[in-house]
């Protein structure tokens, strides 16, 4: 039973990568290489690299505590099997970071991670249950991306405001810009995953109008989210005005590109190569001049089918 469970998990991951449009072996090697380089840099170059990696490991472990998933596992097997599976899968997930800690001889972090992963596995508490009390959001009813997104990421947004506060207190403009970038990235993430096709189909609109409606509201509501941070940064770091303006402009451009990217393959998820193209355009922005019209045309084509335009 336990062996079959993990075989299934392995098969799922392989399928996910294939559906993403990449070769599983190539992707695994690329992810491994990125992890080795990234974690090494983090541990060697930063003071709190180990703590950041500990947080990263928690972000991998927490999604496994989702109530529906655990209820399903509990109902389909004995409690002993369930706890075995939970402990084994948490350990497997923690192994890469445990190895990094071992290499850098961070014994306290090793013990902390092992302790936390076991505690999360036996889970007498739920990290991600469904709140019955809806989190209020300052937006009107549409676009739904912002109501849903804000409720999912309000801790990140709060965190960015805390970073802003620290940046102002210690007079560090770079940290301030980072808090702004975090907000922009959060807004962009609201458009990362395609919604169910019914949520587009239901619109009485044509493809062009629909797309511009989405983009207009994305820019408007993103502006509402970044406005407080931008104002404080402009007040306290006047010398950085140009840099801030550049980042904000680039943030808006990428927000629009991600919307176009999402609808270019709608209702399917964005294949990895396309996502990589957008990622590459971060390093080489002129590429956007070709990508924007390309994604726009593809989006119109996809939306025309769904909206019967």
């Amino acid at each position: 039973m336990i062996k079959y469970y993990f075989q299934l998990q392995f098969t799922r991951q392989v399928r996910k990568l294939r559906d993403f449009g990449v070769n599983p072996i190539f992707a695994s090697l690329a992810i491994l290489a990125l992890f080795v380089i990234g974690s090494n840099l983090l541990m060697a170059k930063t003071e709190f690299g180990g703590h950041i990696l500990l947080i990263v490991s928690m972000s991998w472990l927490f999604p496994l505590t989702v109530k529906r998933r655990n209820d399903f596992l509990k109902s389909s097997m004995s409690l002993i099997q369930y706890f075995r599976i939970r402990i084994i899968e948490n350990t497997i997930i923690s192994i890469p970071i445990l190895i990094v800690f071992l290499v850098f001889q961070e014994w306290i972090l090793i013990i902390t991670l092992l302790f936390l992963s076991t505690i999360i596995a036996i889970r007498v508490f739920s990290f991600s249950s469904n709140y019955t009390f809806p989190i209020p959001r300052p937006f009107s009813e549409f676009p739904f991306e912002f109501s849903v997104g804000l409720r999912k990421t309000y801790l990140v947004i709060l965190g960015s405001y805390i970073l802003l506060f620290i940046a102002i207190k210690v007079g560090n403009p770079n940290l301030g810009v980072f808090s702004l970038l975090l907000l922009l990235l959060t807004c962009i993430s609201f458009y990362g995953i395609p919604e169910n096709e019914i949520y587009v189909w239901v619109y009485k609109s044509n493809a062009k109008k629909f797309l511009f409606h989405k983009m207009k509201f994305a820019v408007f509501f993103s502006s509402l989210i970044i406005a407080p941070t931008s104002i404080f940064l402009l007040i306290f770091f006047k010398a950085q005005v140009l840099i801030l303006a550049c980042f904000i402009a680039l943030g808006y451009v990428f927000l629009l590109v991600v919307i176009l990217l999402k609808y270019s393959t709608f209702p399917r998820e964005v294949p990895l190569p396309k996502g990589l193209l957008v990622g590459f355009s971060l390093l080489f922005p002129p590429l956007l001049l070709a990508l924007i019209p390309y994604f726009y045309n593809q989006s119109i084509r996809s939306l025309k089918i769904i909206l019967h335009d």
Binding site: P134, I135, S147, V148, R151, E195, N196, I198, Y199
Partner: peptide, 8 residues
């Protein structure tokens, strides 16, 4: 029917 998460 499909419902998005975190929507009342």
């Amino acid at each position: 029917p499909f419902f998005m998460t975190k929507i009342t």
